[in-house]
Design a protein around this nucleic acid. Structure first.
Length: 455
RNA sequence: GAGGUUAUAGCUCAGCUGGUUAGAGCACCAGAUUGUGGUUCUGGGGGUCGUGGGUUCGAACCCCAUUAGCCUCCCCA
């Protein structure tokens, strides 16, 4: 016998936690459906050919790979072993656990392109797995709630994502958050006008840290990453723009005047601001953040990230526009934009802020019927059936244990009513209904009980 | 992947410079209450001190390794 244990970075969710998680799922699902998204599920397991190479080199390392069935080592020879893990991997594993929902979605779109009504809007709520090092707010198995639109370049989709995010977080009671928005095209434009074309990644990695380490350190890091002092001199407007509260599109446009792609980025950004306001979002919690980079290499337009304020947890949502995700599966020219909500982090945020609604009930049972044994069982079951026929969630204590035990059970399960059916009650044809919250109990006829419990 | 830190009852923790039999609160079980929970009182069970080695007459305590949690970097939901 071995001691039970959980795999690293995974957790059980007991009933108390599930109640809260389901609340979050429901709120998200409700809003996604409200905006016209349709449900989709894809397998936990995908072929590695689908997953590998989509998330960068680091992503490939973080993929959980599944050993081939049977004798997975049968094709291995000494030469493979000498050459190292990469060559071994190809021969021992051809499947992996999905790493996010976007890539499997792209695969689905490509495989079903002829049936789909484009633009296709889907939402997807499923677990994903990453062989990351667990820490606060970071797990190896966690749920993502994605909503994506493919088959249109319309910036209405971006604005609708902004609107949905507002609605979801407000419904959840998370009021202090900010949707950071950037645009890959602006990042490209920046590298162009500072004379470091093509070095977006290095630029991003460095300027992303500006909040944490400050301007001077960022400049030091840029030098280390091969940027010239001239590059950095040209970058100065960025620090001004980042610091200003409101977005100064004019200044941004002027700075990026020499870059065609940069201009396009500014156009898009300004458009998203305008459309968001046109959708009627009052006081939108959006902020242009040119230092927002995000690791996923496939974003080509808008980039989103939602940060909950006043809590020490990373982003609770991220997303953006990708132009060529389906291209890697042989279907070029299909643009998409999407957002991903991290339920596990949202849960942590809500727990830390203590903002889960109080009415979330552990048990859906409305009433528990006592069990006094054989003499009363027939009547108890009859009434149980009647209650259920009237749509009342009810259960009977399955054993004729002591009353104390039966009441303790109801109490622990937070069942609001206990119906006492003993021989006295059966004789009177009136049954004792006890309110477990107030402690009051009254003798009622079955019709009155049904009426009261259905109220 | 690198660094730091922690690990004692189901949970939260105490346990002095190594010294007999490792404690508390909460939780759990039983009784007071053989038809009434959440309050109260009484009693009870439960730990080879994360795991494996080592030092010592003697280790929860010191040393090494290992595993897991947390934190920082990296990256991300």
């Amino acid at each position: 016998m071995s001691k039970p244990s959980l795999a690293r970075g995974t957790r059980d969710f007991g009933p108390e936690i599930m109640v809260k998680r389901i609340f979050i799922f429901e709120q998200i699902k409700k809003v996604y459906q409200k905006y016209g998204f349709l449900p989709l599920e894809t397998p936990a397991i995908e072929n590695l050919s689908v997953l590998m190479g989509k998330y960068g080199e680091e992503g490939d390392q973080l993929l959980f790979k599944i050993l081939n069935s049977g004798d997975f080592a049968k094709d291995l020879n000494q030469e493979d072993l000498n050459r190292g893990s990469k060559d071994i991997l190809k021969k021992v594993s051809e499947k992996g656990l999905k790493y996010d929902l976007t890539v499997p979605f792209a695969r689905y779109v490509v495989m079903n392109r002829h049936q789909l009504a484009l633009p296709f809007k889907r939402y997807q709520i499923q677990p994903v797995w990453r062989a990351d090092r667990p820490q606060k707010g970071r797990y190896r198995e966690f749920y993502q709630c994605d909503a994506d639109v493919v088959g249109t370049e319309s910036l209405i989709c971006e604005a609708e994502i902004v609107a949905m995010l507002h609605e979801v977080f407000e419904n959840l009671g998370i009021n202090d958050f900010v949707i950071k928005i950037n645009n890959r095209k602006i990042l490209s434009g920046i590298t162009e006008v500072i004379g470091a074309k093509g070095k977006e990644t290095d630029l991003c990695v460095a300027i992303d840290k500006i909040d944490k380490i400050g301007k001077e350190k960022v400049e030091e890091e840029l030098i280390e990453r091969g940027f010239s002092p001239e590059n950095i001199q040209n970058l100065q407007p960025l620090f001004r723009i980042t610091q200003s509260e409101n977005v100064n599109f004019g200044e941004l446009r002027q700075w990026l005047a020499e870059s065609e792609i940069g201009q396009k980025g500014v156009d898009e950004l300004e458009n998203i601001w305008g459309l968001t306001s046109a959708l009627g979002i009052k006081n939108p919690k959006i902020a242009f953040d040119p230092s927002l980079a995000r690791g996923l290499s496939y974003y080509t337009g808008a980039i989103f990230e939602v940060k909950a304020l006043n809590v020490a947890i990373g982003s609770i949502s991220g997303g953006g526009r990708y132009d060529n995700l389906t291209g890697t599966f042989g279907m070029p020219g299909l643009s998409g934009v999407g957002i991903s909500l991290g339920v596990d982090r949202i849960f942590d945020v809500m727990e830390e802020l203590k903002i889960f609604p109080e009415h979330l009930t552990l048990s859906s049972t409305k009433v528990m019927i006592t069990n006094f044994g054989e003499d009363t069982l027939a009547k108890s079951l009859e009434i149980l059936g009647q209650l259920r026929a009237h749509g009342i969630n009810s259960e009977i204590f399955p054993e004729s244990s002591k009353m104390k035990k039966q009441f303790e059970y109801a109490d622990k399960k937070a069942i609001p009513f206990v119906l006492i059916i003993g021989s006295d009650e059966i004789q009177k044809e009136e049954f004792m209904l006890k309110n477990m919250l107030s402690g009051e109990q009254i003798s009622l006829k079955i019709e009155q009980i049904i009426e009261k419990l259905n109220a």
